[in-house]
Nucleic acid binder design. Structure first.
Length: 253
DNA sequence: AAACTGAGCAACCGCCATCTC
DNA sequence: AGAGATGGCGGTTGCTCAGTT
């Protein structure tokens, strides 16, 4: 069995455009399927992650606002490292973003605390600035542990919550949102343009017409033409959409 | 100007829950 | 009912780049 080569590492702009196109066509579900038909040599997981964390048009960019920062702190003290849950309360922010923010934030906080508590201390510490963060593989856990020991207010809650298996309590079930629901929430504040429009506005993308989950309507009518890997056609009951990879989806600007 | 350091962030990994057949 | 597939989540890693020495 020859395993098809799976690409890893940073996404190229071309890959992004392909993914956006196919998510536009099929919706943000069935990631393995999207990964396959798009011709991307990526796993479904990788596609999903790229979409959720980077390509989704509803994402906010830039620094956390003070209000968001406060919210993250509050929610983290309440829920611990339940990043996706916290992210649901911050429209446009992803769990990954919040997680990264938190680590950075707590690192700073821990360093500040350390300076306060032992300004002249020369004893070795996992947070000692001399220990390169490149050794995070070794230190990351220690950083967190040290952090926890410093932050008295947050840590109490954290320790109560972290490391435990969280039950799906009633309130969580009630507030469950699908990705679509979440992004609907975002739209209520800031209208989100269709995926392809966003990219069109950048002036470098020409995407096939959008349709939601075409595959669900007519999954059996997808085929490749003449084995030409660069050209895939989609047929539905009332639409015929052609998608030329590398040609119409490529950069023009 | 070059080397070093650390912050920030994108992406991967592994585990687990849920879905589908 | 259960086995495999798929998706979601939290933890971790590694790269880039700006600031500092």
């Amino acid at each position: 069995m020859v395993q098809e080569e799976i690409r890893k590492g940073p996404w190229t702009e071309q890959e992004d455009l392909q993914l956006v196109c196919f998510v536009g066509l099929f919706g943000d579900r069935r990631w393995d399927f999207i990964a396959k038909v798009s011709g991307l040599k990526r796993t479904g997981k990788s596609c999903r992650l790229r979409w959720v964390n980077y390509l989704h048009p509803g994402l906010k960019r830039g620094k956390m606002t003070p209000h968001e920062e406060k919210l993250v702190l509050e929610l983290h003290s309440q829920w611990g490292n339940r990043w996706s849950r916290i992210a649901r309360r911050l429209p446009g922010r992803t769990d990954n973003e919040i997680k990264n923010y938190w680590r950075t934030h707590m690192r700073k906080k821990a360093q500040e605390k350390k300076q306060e508590t032992s300004p002249s201390s020369s004893s070795s510490s996992t947070l000692d600035s001399s220990s390169s963060w490149n050794n995070r593989a070794v230190n990351s856990k220690s950083v967190d542990e040290t952090t926890e020991s410093f932050d008295s207010t947050i840590v109490q809650d954290m320790s109560a919550l972290q490391g435990k298996k969280y039950q799906k309590d009633q309130d969580e079930r009630e507030e469950f949102y699908s990705m679509d629901d979440i992004w609907k929430d975002i739209t209520s504040d800031e209208p989100i343009k269709p995926v392809c429009d966003v990219y069109r506005e950048r002036g470098n993308f020409n995407c096939p017409p959008l349709a939601s989950s075409l595959w669900e309507y007519c999954p059996e009518t997808l085929w490749r033409v003449g084995g030409d890997e660069s050209k895939i056609f989609f047929s539905t009951n009332d639409q015929f959409v052609s998608c030329y990879q590398h040609e119409h989806m490529s950069l023009t600007g």
